[in-house]
């Protein structure tokens, strides 16, 4: 029973981490909390659903379609809403509010098209086989979710640490002005970051849709709240923090459902987050940021 819960928790945590990693990267680089990340997540799920149901796409191409659609959405959000405010030097609050607008537009448009009902992937999309791995029963679906999430996160970390553009992203995260003085096109880096991070959000969306086999137009809200909790818990802007935070939230949710009551799931897991923040106010990997001036 307990080992089974671990399998569930791992799959859930993997998706939380995947969602939060892009969310935290955007904050780290653009210094904006993009409240459209949940809507982008939902777009990814629907894009995957359409790829499967209408075009009979396989798993890899479904994932790819989700990431492209969501990545494009992120690109457009930056182009239309966040970027212009950044150029006019409205930092933080105005772009955040602009992203609420984007989220509302996306969500209501999708509701207009798809309605409020839940959609499902075809039954046999992922065969319901399961494997025994060190005593834990993992379904093929769970293995796929964990595997894809880990793979994407490793790719992102490799990109940030080893490639020319990845290093440029880290330079901009630390200091856009210094980055510009090195000849880095800072605006392009902002847009690239929004696109990649949103693509990760889209991947998390389609994996969540597969995990619970439910997709609906308002699935972006709950994950957004969890995403915010996860990145605060992990330390704003910190990639490792997003991964660790996702793990903690996923496990606390699954274990509180299994051993206490599903009614109190959110109360317990978010209560735990508060407790951790009381001990480490800037998050697990967070640096203490002093206000300047």
């Amino acid at each position: 029973m307990f080992l089974q819960q671990i399998a569930n928790a791992l799959a859930l945590s993997a998706v939380y981490s995947l969602f939060a990693i892009g969310f935290t990267l955007i904050f780290g680089v653009l210094e904006v909390i993009t409240l459209a990340h949940g809507a982008v997540f939902m777009m990814g799920a629907f894009a995957g659903l359409i790829a499967v149901t209408k075009f009979n796409a396989g798993l890899a191409s479904t994932l790819l379609v989700s990431m492209i659609v969501s990545g494009l959405a992120g690109y457009l959000i930056d182009l239309i809403a966040v970027g212009p405010l950044r150029k006019r030097k409205f930092h933080h609050l105005a772009p955040m509010i602009a992203t609420i607008g984007c989220a509302t537009i996306i969500t209501s448009t999708y509701q207009g098209i798809f309605g409020a009902e839940a959609y499902r992937f075809p039954f046999d999309f992922v065969p319901s086989t399961s494997y025994d791995i060190v005593g834990i029963q993992l379904t093929l679906l769970q293995l796929i979710i964990i595997g894809i999430s880990l793979f994407l996160m490793v790719v992102l970390i490799f990109f940030l640490n080893k490639t020319r553009w990845g290093k440029a992203v880290r330079a901009v995260a630390e200091n856009p002005r210094t980055a510009a003085l090195l000849g880095i096109p800072v605006e392009q880096v902002f847009r690239l970051t929004m696109s990649i991070s949103s693509a990760f959000g889209g991947a998390a969306g389609v994996l969540t849709g597969l995990n619970f086999n439910t997709i609906h137009t308002f699935m972006g809200g709950p994950i957004l709240h969890r995403g915010i909790a996860v990145i605060i818990l992990g330390g704003m802007g910190d990639i490792r923090g997003a991964m660790a935070g996702g793990l903690i939230l996923g496990f606390s949710e699954i274990l509180s459902v299994a051993y206490i009551s599903s009614d109190f799931r959110d109360a317990i897991s978010f209560g735990l987050l508060f407790l951790i923040l009381l001990v480490r106010p800037s998050g697990i990997f967070g640096k203490v940021i002093e206000r300047k001036g």
């Binding site: 020319r164 290093k167 440029a168 880290r170 330079a171 995260a173 630390e174 200091n175 002005r177 210094t178 980055a179 003085l181 090195l182 000849g183 880095i184």
Partner: peptide
Amino acid sequence: PEGRAILTTLKVIENLELGAF
């Protein structure tokens, strides 16, 4: 720039690599 403005969270070698961006 004034005050050096090196990228403190990146390695020394990465700072140099980015100089050649």
